[in-house]
């Protein structure tokens, strides 16, 4: 499970049930989304289904996430990927496979490669700036996604080093979950889309349990995410976020 997806999902969590009575500012909405994206620590088990040209594959992983900087993921299934681990510490990323017993640093050009054949790159996983940090936002209107009324946010990158220079997000007015997102190129061309499915509530937080991530330029079924279980504010031993733990 990629960290980006985690951010998206978690970022989509709603904060409190107390919805804003009047239209909040774009910054406020973004803040609400962001505040839920990085809420201390969380442990989750998730699934990712990748639709290949010939067959589809589902990968299950367990992730331990502490704030913005630290994440540890262990793949559980399929058997081939079992035991593969990834560690993110700040802007560094390692991957470990039990077959090779090596912790390989993923850096530079490698970061732009796809993770496990999905529509996401390692770089997408590494993106740890909050939406608020990365984008200027403006409320462009409201629109329903399915039966949920949403704010439509237009996000414009604050600096040139953001992968997607602009985005359009549909944020649930009540739950502050991103239900739909479009990511655009500098030219304004649509590159990626995200659509959330079932939204549920865990430990008082709203979050989407399903989402589909698509490369808009490419044909194919995209990459599907599902959260199987999630625990917030669970204690995570600090030792987990070390390279030594990759080998365990």
């Amino acid at each position: 499970m990629s960290r980006s997806a985690i951010l998206i999902l978690i970022g989509a969590l709603a904060a409190s049930a107390a919805a804003f009575a009047q239209a909040p500012s774009a910054e406020e909405i973004l803040d609400r989304v962001d505040r839920n994206a990085v809420p201390g620590s969380k442990i989750l088990v998730s699934e990712m289904t990748i639709h290949g040209r010939r067959e589809s594959r589902t990968i299950r992983a367990k992730s331990w996430i502490e704030g913005e900087d630290k994440a540890f993921t262990e793949y559980l299934d399929p058997p081939r990927e079992r035991g593969v681990k990834m560690l993110k510490l700040g802007d560094r990323l390692w991957t470990y496979s039990p077959d090779t017993d090596r912790a390989i640093s993923i850096s530079g050009h490698m970061l732009r490669q796809s993770v496990m054949g999905s529509d996401l790159s390692y770089e997408d996983m590494m993106e740890d700036r909050t939406l608020r940090d990365a984008y200027e936002a403006r409320v462009a209107g409201d629109e329903a996604v399915g039966d949920r009324p949403c704010w439509v946010l237009e996000l414009t990158a604050k600096s040139g080093d953001v992968a997607y220079p602009s985005r359009k997000s549909w944020v649930d007015k009540e739950r502050f979950v991103v239900l739909k997102e479009e990511r655009y190129a500098k030219s304004g061309k649509l590159l990626k889309t995200l659509e959330a499915g079932a939204v549920g509530r865990v430990q008082g937080r709203w979050l989407p349990f399903e989402a589909v991530f698509r490369d808009a330029l490419k044909e194919g079924g995209g990459t599907e995410f599902r959260i199987l279980s999630v625990a917030f504010d669970a204690p995570i031993p600090e030792a987990l976020f070390t390279k030594a733990s990759l080998r365990k």
Binding site: R112, D161, A163, Y164, K186, S187
Partner: peptide
């Protein structure tokens, strides 16, 4: 699709 010098996607 390409990425500019600072890594931003463009198409």
């Amino acid at each position: 699709r390409w990425r500019d010098v600072r890594g931003a996607f463009d198409a």
